[in-house]
Amino acid sequence: MNVLEVSNLTKKFGGLVAVNGVDLNVKKGSITAVIGPNGAGKTTFFNMITGVYTPDGGSIKSNGKDITGSKPHEVTKNGIARTFQNIRLFGNITVLENVLVGMHTHLKGDLVGTLLGLPYIHKEELKAEQEAYRLLKYVGLETLLNEDATNLSYGAQRRLEIARALATKPTILLLDEPAAGMNPRETVELTDLIKKMREELNLTIVLIEHDMKLVMGISEHIVVLDHGEKIAEGKPSDIRSNTKVIEAYLGKSAVGH
């Protein structure tokens, strides 16, 4: 069953066609990787799915619902969460609060109840805090809960972004270069975390990544973008030997060798 169906998705910036008629079907519970050289349009592709950019053509369906052109917050409510390539945490609030913000769609927290300090507000806050703490533990950041998010190391910030995304209780998780800037040990831990999330949280994961070892080791399905076009798609073993892909990454001359 497909939880995400993208067809003919297109985005132009002035004269530049950043994404050109890309199709993608993502199976429930799968791990899919989107790869391609710098500037291939991968992030733009994510940005359209999550409503940050409005597509110039094509359609996006998630969980059977058409979400083309939806606002980012609507997309999130429809069960899609994401992380960002250039980390976008709420820097000057604490780590735990960052995760709490992720939970907001599931909290009532209305104005009147808050002003009157009604018991259900306190109750849901406490519950949310405990849940947020659990999520921090899940990604291994629980000891840093009261730290401001800006003070975390690079790798920790990436994991916090994941925890925050999980807090929205997504069915589909989009990760934009989650291993960027991580050392090899952190990358291994991340790989385990991604696998664990898929198993334990019933998630479907789509990730953009340049680290080929990670990509090949983890994904069932790979999509390759180049200059906005989908040039290949298939199992890791197929992609590894695809001449078009090698060309795209290394230039034409490399293919002969």
């Binding site: 976008r88 609030i93 913000v101 009532k108 925050r164 995304a165 929205t168």
Partner: peptide, 21 residues
């Protein structure tokens, strides 16, 4: 509260805040 945290989230990063719903 949730409200105050939303304000701060918007202050810190509008795009991420939206992505959090």
């Amino acid at each position: 509260s949730k409200i105050g945290r939303s304000w701060k989230a918007v202050r810190e990063n509008e795009i991420a805040a939206q992505a959090m719903g």
